[in-house]
Amino acid sequence: MSSSGFRLSARAKAAKASEIRELLKLVGKPSMISFAGGIPDPSLLGVDLVDAAVREIFSGPASAREALQYSTTEGFAPLRQWIAESMARKGIPAGLDNILITSGSQQGLDLIGRLMLDPGDTVLVSRPTYLGALQCLTAHGARFAQQDAPLAMDGVTPKLIYLIPDFANPSGDTMSERERLAALDRAEALDALVIEDAAYTDLRYEGENIAPIAALDIARCGGIDASRTLYCGTFSKTLSPGMRIGWICGPAALIHKLALLKQGADLHTATFNQRVIHHAAVAGFDTTVARARQTYRTRRDAMLSALERHAPPGVSWTRPDGGLFIWVTLPEGIDAAALLPLAIAQDVAFVPGGAFHADGTGRNTMRLSFSLCDAAQIEIGIYKLCTLIAKATQPRMQVG
């Protein structure tokens, strides 16, 4: 029986497949040069650390049994303590009551959506912004407005402001301290909650660190429990995406409410996974991240250099100080989605930028990830892609 034969909820009927997830099904063949998924290089993940953690956990019957048992909804206390110490180094003093372990930061977004949004509520987002956030918050009935739109919005009062301040997915852009403070000003004026998605913050390989929005917020209000920022962190871009360990850090009253919602969703994040990540983080988080930063910087430089050499006139791109992405803007009238099948036919994949725009714009943009390709692959892939773009800009070959 097809799903159309059942009386589905309005939320289920509105659910759409992720363009990126569907695309990844097409790019698995060995010959494909993939600039598509924002996937960490598996050779840079904490494989040895995880192996040692598993051995340690199963070195004695007591620790093994505990790792295979139910746990508290808030999460494994030693892991939360390690996160609290890490947050403090970022200027965010937090106790265990301020931290909730989630099944990846994506669950964090979902829980915040469930906590804050009623159907029709407005969320301010950047343009472009993370597709997964648009999908998640749409499922909770959100409408979207541009973060820098005028405050007077026909009586609409946004409840949430969603931001990726460091090396954003998809643009690679980083907010300045002035922009972060302005976002807090706006949140206060609107009495809105800020979601700070910090998935890429640890992957800075150029420039000076900028204080997180949560740290600036706490400095203003005097303490985390008086702040209006929920910081969403994750180990997915550093130690392991497959372990699905993330966290939310924020005011204890909100963390308590989020824990109640999580309790109804999955009781708690997998105990075994939390313990493994804790062991791995203690043993070598900084070393693992330092190695990843160096590798990704080399690949970013290779992609920027290839774009400089091969991109036709009228094409522009971002120059990120960290993260995994470069955002390319094509001349007006060029449809990146129409270019995609032509690129895939030549064994090159990317993500069309329209999916990252809540308002349906951005069809002449694309996201390129350099995380999985070495310099030689990047050179070949960018050459092929730019050749297609150049053909598309010719009048008789116009796409879109």
Results as ranks from 00 to 15, higher is better:
residue 212 P to S: 10
residue 298 T to K: 15
residue 244 R to V: 02
residue 177 E to G: 13
residue 254 L to W: 13
residue 241 P to C: 03
residue 226 A to W: 04
residue 60 G to K: 06
residue 114 R to Y: 08
residue 84 A to V: 00
residue 67 A to W: 02
residue 127 R to S: 13
residue 45 L to R: 11
residue 83 I to E: 03
residue 197 D to S: 11
residue 3 S to G: 05
residue 172 G to D: 12
residue 20 I to P: 01
residue 384 K to Q: 15
residue 229 T to L: 02
residue 344 I to P: 00
residue 240 S to K: 03
residue 61 P to Q: 07
residue 104 G to R: 08
residue 244 R to Q: 06
residue 107 Q to K: 07
residue 90 K to E: 12
residue 323 G to H: 08
residue 215 A to L: 06
residue 333 G to D: 04
residue 309 R to V: 10
residue 152 A to D: 14
residue 48 D to R: 15
residue 338 A to D: 15
residue 251 P to A: 14
residue 260 L to P: 00
residue 16 K to M: 04
residue 135 Q to C: 00
residue 95 G to L: 05
residue 9 S to H: 05
residue 271 T to D: 11
residue 149 A to H: 13
residue 280 A to C: 10
residue 173 D to K: 15
residue 165 P to Q: 09
residue 225 D to G: 02
residue 188 E to P: 00
residue 192 A to D: 10
residue 145 A to E: 12
residue 398 Q to C: 11
residue 103 S to I: 03
residue 214 A to R: 15
residue 188 E to V: 01
residue 163 L to N: 08
residue 396 R to M: 04
residue 228 R to K: 12
residue 394 Q to M: 04
residue 360 G to V: 06
residue 153 M to L: 07
residue 377 Q to Y: 04
residue 379 E to P: 14
residue 359 D to M: 14
residue 195 I to V: 07
residue 164 I to N: 15
residue 241 P to W: 00
residue 159 K to Y: 03
residue 192 A to E: 11
residue 322 G to S: 08
residue 208 E to G: 08
residue 255 I to E: 15
residue 324 L to G: 01
residue 189 A to G: 10
residue 262 K to N: 01
residue 89 R to T: 13
residue 111 L to T: 13
residue 131 L to T: 08
residue 327 W to T: 02
residue 6 F to K: 15
residue 314 G to D: 06
residue 311 A to T: 08
residue 222 G to D: 06
residue 346 Q to L: 09
residue 363 R to Q: 12
residue 332 E to F: 14
residue 354 G to E: 07
residue 176 S to C: 02
residue 254 L to E: 00
residue 146 Q to C: 04
residue 78 P to F: 02
residue 385 L to T: 09
residue 7 R to T: 01
residue 162 Y to S: 07
residue 59 S to C: 10
residue 371 S to R: 13
residue 376 A to K: 11
residue 335 D to N: 07
residue 235 F to H: 07
residue 240 S to N: 03
residue 317 W to I: 03
residue 182 A to W: 08
residue 92 I to A: 06
residue 298 T to L: 13
residue 41 D to L: 09
residue 395 P to F: 03
residue 188 E to C: 00
residue 286 D to V: 04
residue 341 P to V: 06
residue 106 Q to D: 12
residue 135 Q to D: 00
residue 334 I to C: 11
residue 274 Q to I: 07
residue 87 M to W: 06
residue 222 G to I: 02
residue 73 T to K: 12
residue 299 R to E: 06
residue 190 L to A: 01
residue 186 R to Q: 05
residue 34 S to P: 01
residue 54 V to A: 11
residue 19 E to C: 05
residue 14 A to K: 15
residue 159 K to G: 03
residue 337 A to W: 02
residue 37 G to L: 05
residue 289 V to I: 07
residue 23 L to W: 06
residue 336 A to S: 15
residue 210 I to C: 01
residue 17 A to C: 01
residue 176 S to I: 03
residue 340 L to F: 09
residue 251 P to S: 12
residue 254 L to R: 14
residue 284 G to T: 04
residue 76 F to H: 14
residue 255 I to N: 14
